[in-house]
Write a protein that binds this DNA or RNA. Structure first.
Length: 707
DNA sequence: TTTGACATCATTTTT
DNA sequence: TGATGTCAAA
């Protein structure tokens, strides 16, 4: 395959540019991943850089593995490129190799969000502080933002209201250290520390890579930026690709301005803009451009303006519904209708939402309508309590320093070991929890001794075989602790689903035995797994948060819940910066659509419990209302332009759905609103197989055929 | 000391 | 809805 095949002028320029740092400002759907893949080809084939000396950083694991596959295929090689990965995975890889230099054992454990929060809660309790002032959630956020920004002024700032904050921070770090654990932020931060404190090691890592590429650069934070700066050094070997308008992770330390300041850190930066969009219709892009042109950001003049030569396109609809149930129902029915009428399949659709809990209604309706769907995001597989429980046993056996794993399982299922016993054990802690139990052992009553003995025996067995046969050990744990009974009594409503999840965990563990991966590698992968990683290419409608939709595209997109307080989120009301991010988020949502775009909002929406609350339409609607067809479902209201409402009604296929029709015969000539003329090839129940002129064969509900 | 029943609370987005 | 905190009984 030719390196420049199928690329436009700007893309070619970006691929071939070499000699100084390159910043590619690439709008949504402008082919930025393509540019990166082709650039890797160029570097290997033309510049002569060995593939394993190229470091390519993507935003998701899924993007990484897709890129790996593509590079492998286009270069016609067998092995997978080793250094295409996410920031977090690469950092973990580096830290495993260099752990000793920063005072960690190489088998450190990665604490997920829940583990970290629990650790902070423990610390706050230990220090006997008031949890109304010292809220674990908030404190986790503060610590996280400090670690992400390499700047501890926030510590001072919040110390006015929380004088013990520095103490909590310090204790939290201590806890992590003695658990031989790192939180997500540490994975990045420790790489910076490692490189800054060990010039020799930094040099070695610089020497490992001849070129560095970064995708989705707009969502990198300060630490990630720092890692890049360190690895690149004073060489000219970096290309970053991104779009400030798609920066949606400022709450994780990213900043749309970072990308614009790239030039300052990397002198002689060449900038190439990709504004030609290959994804969406002109009408969709018009709305997208409208949304983002209202931005108040300082970098307003640098906004990319997307254009396409896919002129026209289908109208974009904005629907107002009475209740959230109706909203879901509309979406479901519309999907079915488009499948029937226009030959779409389930996998062509995505429903985008601002918050994961909005998926519940939609899910319910889809179940009723028998629409196959997949929810991406929400509670992830490895975050499910039952999965974490079993994994915690394995984790603890592997790493008996792991405090959160220990606390999770020591009394699960209940074996009569409560808070006091744990405290006593903790007071004997020196090297790890097993040692602590043994040292505290003699102080306990015979009953507790027995229980601890049982626990230690389980752990001992798992320790012996855990690495070789993790799936066997998972089953062993499941049986020995009567985990099934525990699930049944704790979750009388959905224990079956939960057992199925455990079953799935067994399978996943079996897989690693086959693939030759270690259990530690598996653990690492699972803790760094992302929402998109589970995305399957099956024939189902995808329901996901806008965040999870980053980088994806779909022929038909629904954006649900366009209400003030939902989208934009109520949390963003007082903060201009946050509101700007909501706007960018909306922009990302709109630009996922290739052909059709529907936006919906509901007058009433259920909050927690099941209480219906009145809503206000999203303020973003104001910006786009001239470019979309608005209508109200059900009753017409005065506010809706007469024309639009009637336009919908006349074009609404659902209205014509119940026509009674006499039977068609094979060979009969028919007409269809969308596909035009055709001839019936066969009949299957209420559907007909029709060959349409210039369209081909389609299965169509007879109701939609005319003679 | 531990457990389980009950009340109360809050919900963005995620590596 | 579900997760967490509080309190009295075992």
């Amino acid at each position: 395959m030719d390196i420049l095949e199928g690329l436009n002028e700007e893309q070619k320029e970006a691929v071939l540019y070499f000699g100084s740092p390159l910043l590619v400002l690439a709008g949504a759907g402008s082919g930025k991943t393509k540019v990166i893949t082709h650039k890797i080809m160029f570097l290997v084939k033309e510049v002569g850089i060995p593939l394993h000396r190229i470091l390519a950083i993507t935003f998701t694991n899924k993007a990484a593995s897709e890129m790996k596959g593509r590079v492998r295929k286009t270069l016609g090689i067998d092995e997978y490129p080793p250094w295409i990965s996410t920031f977090h995975s690469i950092s973990a890889k580096i830290l495993r190799m260099e752990a000793e230099h920063i005072g960690y054992a190489p088998d450190f454990i990665i604490y997920d969000e829940e583990d970290s929060k629990k650790t902070i809660r423990d610390v706050i309790k230990e220090l006997d502080l008031n949890t109304d002032i010292y809220k674990p959630e908030k404190i986790k956020q503060i610590i996280s933002s400090i670690k992400q920004s390499l700047d501890d002024t926030a510590l001072e700032f919040y110390s006015f209201t929380m004088p013990h904050l520095p103490k909590i921070y310090e204790k939290y770090e201590e806890h992590l250290a003695f658990s031989n654990a790192m939180d997500f932020d540490d994975l990045l931060l420790n790489v910076v520390k490692l490189f800054k404190e060990n010039q020799e090691i930094l040099k070695q890592w610089q020497n490992r890579f001849d070129y560095i590429l970064v995708d989705e650069y707009q969502d990198t934070n300060k630490v990630q930026h720092e890692i890049l700066k360190l690895i690149v050094g004073d060489r000219n070997c970096i290309t970053v690709v991104g779009d400030p308008q798609q920066c949606i992770y400022t709450w994780r330390g990213a900043n749309p301005e970072n990308i614009l300041e790239f030039e300052q850190d990397f002198p002689n930066t060449k900038i190439i803009k990709l504004e030609r969009n290959y994804r969406s219709t002109e009408k969709i892009l018009l709305v997208a451009n409208k949304v983002i042109s209202r931005t108040k950001g300082r970098w307003k003049e640098k906004v990319l303006k997307l254009w396409t030569d896919r002129k026209g396109g289908e109208d974009i609809y904005l629907l107002k519904l009475d209740t959230d149930k109706q909203e879901s129902l509309f979406i479901g029915k519309k999907i079915q209708q488009l499948i029937r009428d226009e030959g779409y399949s389930y996998s062509d659709f995505a429903v985008l939402i601002r918050m994961s809990y909005l998926s519940r209604n939609i899910e319910e309706v889809f179940v009723n309508l028998r629409i196959p769907y997949q929810i991406i995001g929400g509670v992830k597989f490895f975050e499910r309590a039952e999965v974490k429980d079993i994994l915690a046993y394995l984790r603890f056996a592997l790493q008996p320093k792991d405090t959160q794993a220990f606390k999770r399982i020591i009394n699960l299922p209940s074996r009569g070991i409560g808070e006091k016993t744990i405290q006593k054990i903790q007071s004997h802690y020196e090297s790890d929890w097993i040692q602590a139990i043994n040292d505290a052992y003699e102080t306990f009553s015979s009953k507790i001794k027995m229980r601890l003995q049982e626990f230690l025996e389980i752990i001992d067995t798992v320790r012996k075989y855990g690495n070789k046969a993790p799936s066997e050990m998972a089953k062993y744990i499941f049986d020995t602790v009567n985990y099934e009974d525990y699930l049944v009594s704790k979750y009388p409503n959905d224990w079956e689903d939960r057992i199925a999840n455990v079953q799935e965990l067994f399978n996943a563990l079996k897989e690693i035995e086959k693939s030759g991966k270690t259990f530690l590698e598996f653990l690492e992968e699972s803790s760094l797994s992302q929402a998109q990683d589970n995305l399957q290419n099956d024939n189902s409608v995808k329901i996901m948060t806008v965040h999870a939709s980053k980088g994806l595209e779909f022929p038909v997109v629904f954006i649900a819940g366009l209400e003030d307080g939902v989208f934009p989120s109520g949390r963003s009301f007082e903060d201009i910066e946050q509101m700007e991010e909501e706007r960018r988020l909306f922009y990302v949502a709109v630009t996922r659509a290739k052909e059709k775009l529907f936006m919906t909002f509901s007058k009433l929406r259920a909050g927690y419990g099941n209480q219906l609350n009145e809503t206000k339409p999203s303020r973003f609607i104001q910006d786009i209302k001239d470019h979309v067809k608005t209508f109200t479902a059900g009753k017409k209201t005065a506010k809706v332009p007469e024309k639009s409402a009637s336009a919908y009604n006349s074009s609404s296929k659902t209205q014509t759905f119940n026509r009674t029709i006499s039977d068609f015969k094979v060979g009969e000539l028919v007409k269809h609103d969308v596909f035009g003329k055709g001839v019936i090839k066969g009949i299957e129940g209420n559907k007909a197989i029709v060959i349409f002129e210039g369209v081909g064969e389609k299965k169509i509900l007879k109701d939609f055929l005319k003679r």
